[in-house]
Design a protein around this nucleic acid. Sequence first.
DNA 1: CGCAATGTTAATTCAATATTAACATAAGAT
DNA 2: ATCTTATGTTAATATTGAATTAACATTGCG
Lengths: 226, 226
Amino acid sequence: MNSDYKILLVDDEPDILEFLSYNLKKEGYAVCTANNGKEAIVVAKRENPHLIILDVMMPDMDGIETCRELRALPGLKDVMIAFLTARSEDYSQIAGFEVGADDYINKPIKPRVLISRITALLRRGKSTAEVNQKMDLGGIRIDRERYVVVQDGKEINLPKKEFELLALLASKPGKVFTREAILDQVWGGEVVVGDRTIDVHVRKLREKLGEDFIRTVKGIGYKFEF
Amino acid sequence: MNSDYKILLVDDEPDILEFLSYNLKKEGYAVCTANNGKEAIVVAKRENPHLIILDVMMPDMDGIETCRELRALPGLKDVMIAFLTARSEDYSQIAGFEVGADDYINKPIKPRVLISRITALLRRGKSTAEVNQKMDLGGIRIDRERYVVVQDGKEINLPKKEFELLALLASKPGKVFTREAILDQVWGGEVVVGDRTIDVHVRKLREKLGEDFIRTVKGIGYKFEF
DNA sequence: CGCAATGTTAATTCAATATTAACATAAGAT
DNA sequence: ATCTTATGTTAATATTGAATTAACATTGCG
């Protein structure tokens, strides 16, 4: 489903906001909006969208300027940014790309083109967004891309099941995962394995990482803590 | 200097080819041309350009089809491809993005916009394209241009598949590439070859470079490390 | 205490990968 | 074209190391 993606629309004209919002929601995207540049920055910080669509012509702070400020925010380095321009404004295409835009979209907007364009943009952005699947907790970093766990700078290579188990527990530190849930997530629904299997994997993780990271909650399951 | 970048222009109208070529060369880009889709594929394979600009409307094989075939070539996964379209042909924008285009450029073409656009495109592609020029890692240098691998000063000639496999793994040292990803990148999407084929190529690389450069991550894939 | 849940270790099973050699195909040479 | 060699692929078999289990030990809560 497209709702994996959140899109922030920024335009001073409510009609356009409405029109875009309607079309994007219909495709299943999560949509949030802002009426001007200042608001856009606030919302962007809060919502962390995957894509921001900026009208170039706006009072006070125009799209170019907004884009520049957005790009300066640490968390928003990897967001895709597209500009909305009137067909004739060539100058803004130039300025836009210089300021770090990923695409521009001409008005008047045709829904089919819009959607197609956005799909392409998000697909392109995915590569970098996906890379950031790293977690960092209590001196331990789980690096999915390289498939290693880094503890105090040392790389630890874990076999698949151990890695996935650790990743699951660490994905919500403090939360207790029942054995059932663990089997379901790490092993996959249908697989049936013996009772002691999880314990053994936990043992190995404790050997490799230290005894204190995974805690047993008797009668319930296991949790990661640091 | 811009001449780090090679651009392939494809159009059936000599005038346009001439016009674009002139403007791009003036900016310092290396330019090569083709008059139709078939020719484009031949030239692209030979020249390995960073960016291909394709006219959508061409006799025989149109831009969309050409793009599809280009994308299917293993060596050209990372090329940037831009389409040249008449302003009205919205349909081609849709089809174009679906087929893996990175941008489209409207006719009539204004030099300033063209250059700005191309700069942006190349910058975007840089991450992957530039890396593929020359990499230097742990005593190994991969020289795409000369298609050789240099290890401790010695030149090693690798067959195509071995070279591409090594180049892929080395393009992101440490990153684990799944077999699926490897097949997709090195062999190309449609081709179906057995799983053991990859192993055999890995073995040959290990024979030639040493056992320790390619590490297998059981259940996941392979990674390059040094 | 007694019992059920969890821990531990080592042995076993099993699946993924490695290896080799045979076969197929493409590229170059004559 | 035909021969020749380099490259690519497959199939059969071996090997490795991860995953699982079995057997027994320990814990901790009612």
